[in-house]
Amino acid sequence: MAWDSSTRRASLPPDWPVIRVRILTRDQGKCTWMHEGKRCGWKATDVDHIVPHSQGGTDHDSNLTSLCSWHHRRKSAAEGHAARRPPVSRQRPRKRHPGEL
């Protein structure tokens, strides 16, 4: 994440450094990313919101997890792509009236 151009850092609580250390300690300093039932286990360097603030997530410990930088970038990129994707309409297309043809 390019923090220099991001406004997300400003949305973190003032005690984020304390929270970050607490979450990394809780997760034993290991990445918690799960793939095919196995935990990554690489050294965790980042603390990530499971549910982003933009989707109603909080800074509560239950919404935070430790990730290695590779998995954090992967997750953030996927969230960014999903946010830019146009919404899918679940309505049937409106049938045009024969007089409009």
Rank of each mutant, 00 (worst) to 15 (best):
S5L: 14
K38V: 11
R84C: 04
G57P: 09
R73L: 07
I50D: 11
R9W: 07
D46R: 02
R20N: 02
R73H: 12
P17S: 00
L24F: 07
K43I: 06
H71N: 12
S66F: 11
G29F: 05
L67Q: 08
R8K: 05
R39I: 07
Q91N: 13
G29D: 09
A2N: 15
S62W: 11
E36G: 13
R22Q: 11
R39W: 01
T58I: 10
P87N: 06
G99R: 11
L64A: 00
C40L: 07
T7D: 14
V51A: 14
E79A: 13
R84I: 02
S69T: 13
A10N: 11
M34P: 10
I23H: 03
E79I: 06
G99D: 15
S6C: 08
R20S: 09
W16N: 13
E36S: 14
S76Q: 03
R96Q: 14
R94Q: 09
V88D: 09
I50Q: 04
Q55T: 06
G57T: 07
V21D: 14
S6Q: 09
V18Q: 01
S11K: 13
I50K: 15
R94C: 06
V88F: 05
G41C: 02
R73I: 08
K38H: 09
D61Q: 05
K30M: 06
T58V: 08
R26L: 07
D46I: 03
S66L: 02
S62G: 10
D59S: 15
V21W: 01
A77G: 06
M34T: 15
H53K: 15
W33M: 08
D59V: 00
R73D: 11
D46Q: 06
S76N: 10
G56I: 02
P87M: 01
P13F: 04
E100C: 00
E36T: 08
T45W: 13
R20G: 03
R22D: 12
H97Y: 12
W33L: 04
C40V: 08
M1C: 04
H53F: 11
C40N: 12
G37P: 14
W16H: 07
E79L: 11
C68M: 07
W16T: 03
M34H: 15
H72D: 14
W33E: 15
L12T: 09
A44D: 12
A83Y: 13
P13Y: 03
H53D: 10
D59H: 15
E36F: 06
P14D: 08
D15H: 07
R20D: 07
I50E: 11
V21N: 09
H60I: 01
P52C: 00
R26I: 04
Q91P: 03
A82C: 04
C68T: 03
A44E: 07
G37N: 12
T7S: 15
K95S: 13
W3H: 13
L24W: 02
R8T: 14
A2H: 13
I19E: 05
R73V: 05
S62Q: 09
G80N: 09
K38I: 01
L101V: 12
D4W: 10
R85G: 00
G37T: 10
L24H: 03
R20W: 00
D59T: 10
V18F: 04
W70F: 15
L101K: 11
C31E: 00
K75A: 00
W16E: 13
